[in-house]
Amino acid sequence: MTILVVADLLQGPENGAVAPATLNTVDAAAKVGGDVHVLIAGQGVGGVAEAAAKIAGVAKVLVADNAAYAHLLPENVAPLIVALVTESGAKGYSHVLAPATTNGKNILPRVAALLHVDQISEIISVESADTFKRPIYAGNAIATVQSSAAIKVITVRTTGFDPVAAEGGSASVEAIAAAHDAGTSKFVGEALAKSDRPELTAAKIVVSGGRGMGNGDNFKHLYTLADKLGAAVGASRAAVDAGFVPNDMQVGQTGKIVAPQLYIAVGISGSIQHLAGMKDAKVIVAINKDEEAPIFQVADYGLVADLFDAVPELASHL
């Protein structure tokens, strides 16, 4: 049994580095059991492949370095993956895994449909090589799903698995010459949000603000607090829709799923959709002036207070 992990690559300043979510996916692959191969598809990714070969537990790194794979356009990358798992003399892939990042979610269902199999999205645990658990209904139920497909296509919710070490492995590197260029889509450009704070989905502490923040300027209170804690800053959909902060800060069913050690919800009521994104945090703190707010039902520590008094005071205690 061999498992193919499709690596997600960071764009922008980190140009092409393996996204951390890939390390959690390798952990999920190890739990399935068998040899783990990692596919690095992109343009100018030779150095990335060398780095990927050091990931603990990886037996082989496949590098598809071609202009067609730049920015991981699914129209081109999906046929590459399908060819890898179906070609004659294939490596006997039984599973194709990718992290449930926007790239993983974009590419993998296309792969599954081309293979005529159902996909299992966002698994949080591996029960056996064909049985997995995944959340449904915004995390309000957990389904155990069994796949009878010859090749199981799966995306991995990174907060369900621990990242493997990025160093210490010694995989062989194999170049894949194939170039699949469908010619139906083109990358035009991107606008990435700049942030010096830890990445939201990987941060140990997350401080999030909601509608109660009142306006975008007031988020400076959260930034001060976050910097003292070494935390990432998130937001509820209400705060994003009101234009306080950009949407890539949104935590929830439709935003990012986080599971930090500590999640501090400030001025957030705690809707079902928001809880879907953070209720697996180890410790949840809620600061809200409405003592009836639903967030207090999941908070380990609740403080009923005006956030504009409590947040600066909290920062001053650290």
Binding site: T131, A143, K279
Partner: peptide, 19 residues
Amino acid sequence: TNKTLKVEAPAARSAGIKV
């Protein structure tokens, strides 16, 4: 090719305290 074997409630969080 997928079959749902079981659907369970997620582990409940134990009640917290107000400080």
